[in-house]
């Protein structure tokens, strides 16, 4: 999911950086001082999750957790993932500094999307599990689609790479879905105010 340096063309890189810039700005605007520790924790969780790899076919895939982070943080996903990805880039050369913008956008924006799409579902007592699963899985799917689109804009055939990415991420989608269900379910039971801060008693 981390696009390496020197693969994408300059306009795509610039667009990605711009998107990330806007997202980070919006994210920092909602960031309150009470939220800072939570953002830090989730940023660290994201940072570590990307290091867990499952070899698959010609490639290997890893956990992303962007759905979970998205559900919990909304727009603040952008700053959280930006920090995580920045450190991954400089410490492990995952992705790179020039692709930081694109990579952050690819993973953070789906997080924001699932925040708006599935948060209401998670709130409802009945469909909470379905919502959480969809959030985890859909965020990965959307990130994969973004990567395929960007590769297509740089010359690779969209269909081929999209098919490949989809196939590679299908198991991860399922795993992410389950993890999100697990954590969201747990939080809902124990500390619902983390999930729904607006309903603080």
């Amino acid at each position: 999911m981390h696009i390496s340096e020197g693969v994408l063309s300059a306009p795509v890189l610039l667009a990605g950086a711009l998107g990330t810039g806007i997202g980070t700005f919006l994210g920092l605007r909602c960031l309150t001082s009470e939220k800072v520790p939570q953002v830090a924790l989730l940023s660290a969780a994201f940072f570590v999750a990307s290091l867990v790899h499952v070899p698959l076919g010609p490639s290997s895939v890893h956990l992303i957790l962007n759905g979970l982070v998205g559900i919990l943080l909304g727009w603040m996903t952008f700053p959280a993932l930006l920090v995580g990805l920045f450190l991954q880039a400089i410490l492990f050369q995952f992705g790179g500094l020039t692709t930081l913008g694109v990579n952050t956008f690819n993973m953070a924006f789906p997080g924001v999307v699932v925040y708006y799409l599935f948060k209401p579902l998670i709130k409802s007592p009945r469909l909470s599990v379905v919502g959480a699963f969809c959030a985890g899985a859909f965020a990965v799917l959307l990130a994969g689609i973004f990567v395929a689109l960007e590769l297509a804009l740089t010359g690779e055939s969209f269909q081929a790479s999209a098919k490949l990415i989809l196939m590679a991420h299908l198991p991860i989608m399922v795993i992410e879905g389950f993890i999100t269900v697990l954590i969201v379910g747990f939080l809902k039971k124990v500390r619902p105010e983390i999930l729904f801060p607006e309903e603080k008693p």
């Binding site: 981390h2 924790l41 999750a49 290091l51 867990v52 290997s60 890893h62 124990v190 500390r191």
Partner: peptide, 23 residues
């Protein structure tokens, strides 16, 4: 939050090796 992170960490350990993501 603490417990969920413990769950997360357990999961990470169970799925064993720490792998990198690049070629």
């Amino acid at each position: 939050m603490k417990k969920s992170l413990i769950i997360l960490f357990l999961f990470l350990i169970i799925s064993s090796k720490v792998w990198a993501h690049k070629i």
